[in-house]
């Protein structure tokens, strides 16, 4: 598969180089989250949504900075523009589509400063993706993130049943479960090359 093709970019971000399991990005919400499948799906949708916004912002910021020869300001611009854009979109949603806002709204401000979002923008500019490729990358990363959130939520629901020792009833258990999951996902490494 051509490494510039949209399918490859999508699958690469979604499975081979999953943001959570192979790059440890955005694990804060996943450690903190309670084991609930419904929340996981919503959270995943929100992350995907914000990632698409971030990808669009990143393309715009990159074009502007390249035009002005100010590439060293990239990080500062990314942080501010993404945080601003997410807040703007949140206000728009609140006004135009209260239903969607009700579903996604509570997580939006939390996610704006999540490492996965900034990493998406940074990787996108590192790989010099075009606008369309960037969108495919964002959708793939979002899909991968949701996939892992849903799997972990499902596992958590199971984990509540057996009596794990008290010592492990913290982040430790979820981390080790995530490690095993990450091991499973490593089987996908190299697919498509």
């Amino acid at each position: 598969m051509n490494s510039d093709s949209l399918t490859f970019i999508f699958l690469n971000a979604c499975i081979m180089n999953n943001f959570v399991l192979s790059m440890f990005l955005g694990i804060c919400p996943f450690i903190g989250m309670q084991g609930n499948l419904k929340t996981a799906v919503r959270m995943g949708m929100t992350v995907t949504f914000v990632m698409v916004i971030a990808s669009i912002c990143a393309t715009a910021v990159n074009l502007l900075l390249a035009y002005l020869h100010l590439e060293y300001l990239r990080l500062i611009c990314f942080v501010c523009v993404i945080a601003g854009a997410v807040q703007l979109v949140e206000m728009l949603l609140k006004k135009k589509s209260p239903a969607l806002h009700g579903a996604l709204g509570i997580y939006l401000p939390l996610i704006a400063t999540n490492s996965a979002i900034l990493a998406l923008a940074l990787f996108q500019s590192l790989n010099q993706y075009s606008f369309i490729q960037g969108l495919a990358y964002a959708l793939g990363a979002g899909a991968g993130f949701s996939l892992v959130l849903v799997i972990i939520a499902g596992l958590r629901e199971r984990l509540a049943l057996p009596g794990a020792p008290d010592v492990g009833r913290s982040a430790a258990l979820s981390l080790i479960v995530a490690g095993i999951l990450s091991l499973a996902f490593m089987g996908f490494a190299g697919v498509g090359y």
């Binding site: 008290d166 492990g168 982040a171 981390l175 080790i176 095993i180 990450s182």
Partner: peptide, 25 residues
């Protein structure tokens, strides 16, 4: 080798958290 790969990060951090919460207890 797996310890230098991503899964190892999860395992080692989980292990440290376990050890420390056991020690504190």
């Amino acid at each position: 080798a797996v310890m230098a790969l991503p899964p190892g990060g999860f395992f080692v951090l989980g292990g440290w958290l376990l050890a420390i919460s056991w020690w504190k207890r």
